[in-house]
């Protein structure tokens, strides 16, 4: 691969392209910051570990209930800048997801709309790499919300902690069984504490800690690049 392509990844090229058509406001502001090069050392980058809770797994019918995130840089996870947003659904929530998330109707309906939460998320995400466990699900819901709000897809460099672990296992010719790749199960592997509560914020923190552990173990004594970790 030529130096040019290396430096400007496909994602970065897409960002430049999209910037031209993005509407004024939070989305345009978010896209104005270049994405990090895949050849940078991973310690030099900034990250945002994020998790969303939704009413279900179907991005056509289900909706985001809450978003939590914690910023990470080379020194650690800074809880001071963590955030947790409840999102007001535009449709009634099915009863079983209330049971899962422990959120009551009152809590949810007094929350902010997705349109007023998204700018905060985009601001936090600006210049950062998104970290999530099974990121494609979160991305699907966030992307859908962005298209609906800004008529523009969500473009973001991503490290998926599940994918990262999966690739390492495949590399060692291991085929993980179902249940071995959950956030809780992987955290045990890295001697991380067991978290009982599951909400968007504690799961974001859980994924962020897992990422630090995974990166730290893969780094060893060699230079570990962002490109080695990115999905």
């Amino acid at each position: 691969m030529s130096g040019f392509l290396h430096q400007f990844s496909r994602l970065e090229i897409k960002r430049r392209h999209l910037l031209k058509s993005a509407p004024e406001g939070p989305m345009r502001d978010y896209l104005s910051q270049p994405f990090p090069s895949r050849r940078k050392r991973y310690e030099e980058l900034r990250y945002l570990a994020l998790d969303t809770e939704t009413t279900g797994l179907d991005d056509l019918h289900d909706q985001i209930l809450s978003i939590g995130y914690v910023p990470i840089d080379g020194l650690g996870i800074h809880l001071r800048d963590a955030a947790y947003h409840l999102v007001k659904p535009y449709r009634e929530i099915p009863e079983q997801s209330v049971v899962i998330h422990g959120l009551t109707d009152d809590e949810v309906y007094s929350a902010d709309s997705i349109e007023s939460v998204l700018p905060k998320v985009l601001k936090a995400l600006k210049g950062r790499v998104l970290i999530a466990h099974y990121a494609s699900l979160d991305l699907r819901f966030l992307g859908w919300a962005c298209r609906r709000t800004y008529r523009c897809p969500l473009l973001v460099p991503v490290i998926d902690t599940l994918d990262l672990e999966y690739r390492t296992m495949r590399h060692r010719n291991q085929y993980p069984k179902k249940g071995e790749m959950t956030l809780d199960a992987l955290r045990v592997l890295y001697n991380l504490p067991r978290y009982r509560a599951h909400n968007a914020l504690s799961d974001a923190l859980a994924a962020g800690e897992l990422f630090m552990a995974q990166a730290s173990h893969r780094a060893g004594r060699r230079r570990l690049l962002f490109g080695d970790l990115a999905s």
């Binding site: 650690g76 996870i77 809880l79 001071r80 890295y190 630090m212 552990a213 730290s216 173990h217």
Partner: peptide
């Protein structure tokens, strides 16, 4: 206290 904390990870031997 919790929001004042920074979380750090060190692998064995680090």
């Amino acid at each position: 206290l919790p929001p004042k904390l920074t979380v750090r990870y060190a692998r064995r031997g680090q």
